[in-house]
Amino acid sequence: MNKDVKVIKVKNLCKKFGDFTANNNLSFEVSKGEIFGFLGANGAGKTTAIKILCGLSYPTSGEISVAGFDVYKQREQLKRNIGYMSQKFSLYEDLTVFENIRFYGGIYGLSKEVIHRKADDLLKKLDLQHARNKRISSLPLGWKQKLAFSVAIFHNPEIVFLDEPTGGVDPVTRRQFWDLIYEAARGGITIFVTTHYMDEAEYCDRVSIMVDGKIEALDTPAKLKEDFNAGDMDQVFLALARTATNVE
């Protein structure tokens, strides 16, 4: 991790849908190579924020730059430098494993040779060589998610945004998924990951915890546990949720 280089800079990000404020004045920075956890319960506003950072949606206000590009004016350059794994499933179910890899590699402009070489390496690493020509629809969810992640970083982006990448899979597969994340981070890719599994927060370098559209806490997991006098992140989260309901 390089703490001097900030690849995501967000200042006073607000997003409103009508009178409803989904993101309320978010400010944070993410360093190069960091694994940044973006935590919050369902409906907290995580997906809303991640879509803005990826250039898929306009913020209502705020200054946001990602990989050095402004989300208002330089969205297309921004998109060249990021990967995104959406909360909805993002591979084509009616295409095979290899066809999906080739398609996403191709639209990022990778050459045919590079696509073939990297695809072979990737399938070997995931132990999915036997599934190369199987349709995505026939694979178990855990495999699909690992594959979707690998496809999202296939073009070597600076930052990858993962929106609840481990939703609905068993703990063993989740652990394997996090191994992939660590590996990518070691390779220099910044990871921005949302989750509502609090145990996953422990794997992050820093986490922000969002409640009802606001960031209520932001620090390393160790520091947060200390501040809240909590044994694990679950307790930190519960403490925060309690303050949120008290305020209302």
Binding site: L56, K79, I82, S86
Partner: peptide, 13 residues
Amino acid sequence: EIGTIEQINVTPI
């Protein structure tokens, strides 16, 4: 409907 359009929109296509 399937959701793949987001994956397309996040690329520089």
